[in-house]
Computed example of a mutant assay.
Amino acid sequence: WIDGFVGGASGGGLLLVHDERLLGLVDDWLTGVPAEAFTDVLPLLRRTFSGYEPGVRRTLGELVARGPKAGGPGHTSPGVPGFAPTPDRDRADAVLPLLHLVLGTEALV
């Protein structure tokens, strides 16, 4: 699943470079692979990450070596990082005018 999730088709690793939460999820998953299964997973990981441009691989290595920023988007905290406990209706509703414009529909009152 890792190749389909963060492989070349999904931005060639740039998604991981720019989204620390996603990089943190992948890093947590990878560090949670049991030692006895890691050897079996390694060829899949190598195939996935070898498809990335050299600069992307280097940047990912630097990000992983640095670790998540304190309090930043990759920071581990209770709950799901980056998500509020309840939806923000005002933020969600803010997209409606643009959505109606793009779809060519009229806003419902």
Score class of each variant (00 low, 15 high):
W29M: 11
R46V: 08
T31M: 01
P85W: 06
L22T: 12
L14S: 09
F83W: 15
G55Q: 10
E36I: 09
V95Q: 14
L23N: 05
W29R: 13
S10T: 14
A35L: 08
V102S: 11
G7A: 06
F49W: 06
S77N: 02
G79L: 03
R47G: 01
L108Q: 13
S50I: 00
A84S: 09
H75G: 01
V80Q: 11
G12T: 05
V17D: 04
F49A: 07
L23E: 08
L103M: 13
L99T: 13
D3E: 14
V64Y: 04
Y52L: 02
S10K: 04
G82H: 13
V64N: 02
P54D: 07
L98H: 11
G12R: 07
T39V: 08
L23Y: 07
E62I: 00
P54M: 04
D19E: 14
L23F: 06
D90S: 15
L16K: 05
R91A: 05
P87Y: 05
P43H: 03
G24Q: 10
V80K: 11
R47L: 04
P87R: 13
V80I: 13
D19I: 02
A92C: 04
L45R: 09
F5T: 07
P97N: 12
E106Q: 13
G7H: 11
F38A: 12
S10C: 03
F83Y: 15
R47P: 00
L108H: 13
P54K: 06
R91Q: 10
L103P: 02
A84V: 00
S50A: 15
T39R: 12
I2R: 08
A9D: 13
L101I: 01
R46G: 00
L16R: 07
A9K: 15
A65L: 06
F83H: 09
S10M: 07
V56N: 05
L14V: 09
G74A: 13
L15S: 07
E53S: 07
V17T: 02
G13L: 03
S10R: 12
S10E: 11
D88G: 01
E36D: 14
D3Q: 15
P81C: 00
P87T: 08
T39P: 01
L16Y: 04
T86W: 09
P73W: 03
P68Q: 04
R57G: 03
F49D: 03
T105N: 01
V33Y: 11
D19K: 08
T31F: 02
G12Y: 09
L101M: 10
F38M: 14
V26D: 03
T86H: 13
D93N: 14
P73I: 00
R47D: 08
G67E: 05
V102F: 12
G61R: 11
D19G: 03
E20N: 07
